[in-house]
Amino acid sequence: MRRLVSDTLVIAERNLVRLPRAPELLLAFTVQPIMFVLLFRYVFGGAIKTPGYSYADFLIPGIIVQNIAFGGFVTALGLNEDLHKGLIDRFRSLPMARAAVLAGRTSADVVTNGLSAVILILTGLAIGFSFHTSVPEAIAGLGLLLLFGYAFSWVFAFLGMLVSTPEAANSVGFIAVFPLTFISSAFVPVQSMPSVLRAFAEVNPFTITVDAMRSLWLGAPAHNNIWGAVAWALGIIALFAPLAVARYRRAAGL
């Protein structure tokens, strides 16, 4: 167990140290989310009715959850690259904890997701978003956000170990996760959707998490959303972490 923690930290450090040296990745964490916030706020914002809230208030929790969920993409691409370049072989030939390579990756994502979240919150504040709740609630919201992002990092870790090329990881991840984020309450109220989509959107973990964020940041009625969101995140980790580690143990390299 001690080995797992220390090996995980070594790998997490590796992934964070290399980050500033790969500028294209840094762009994905900074410029891209800002771009999306501005596009949604000013292109769709005027057309979408969000009863009770300004669109800026409505949008920011949703778009942050979407961005953080995609933060794990770095893990999918990075692991796939490691697989192809023989680094996974090297790690697997070392006497290190078997889960550490993946746990280190996903832990590093928590740091980069935190960075993305701060940038998005600042952008939000600049375009009219404001917290309507207390500081502890706002911080709890940030915590929930990072937990949800961590859960999706494990989904992407599994994906990265599963597919044969980084390009495949990119398209499979995009096709699987993108609709999930859109058929939710992230960008529009679910009441505006056709009934089939709406039925799906209401049980979608994205909707539950986004609604939980809105109650923690905007004071919207919480219902069971906060515990629901935590349960979803823990459930996703419980399912995908063992799947990803099992793939890693059997990784065939090239």
Binding site: R14, K85, D89, S93, P95
Partner: peptide, 29 residues
């Protein structure tokens, strides 16, 4: 007790030479 050097140079190209070796050493404990 074994060392493996592969067909494909398995080093992290975004880390320096020293960072690569230090990482491997720490993963040996």
């Amino acid at each position: 007790r074994i060392g493996l050097a592969g067909q494909y140079a398995a080093v992290d190209e975004n880390l320096t030479g020293l960072e690569n070796l230090t990482m491997v050493g720490r993963l040996y404990g």
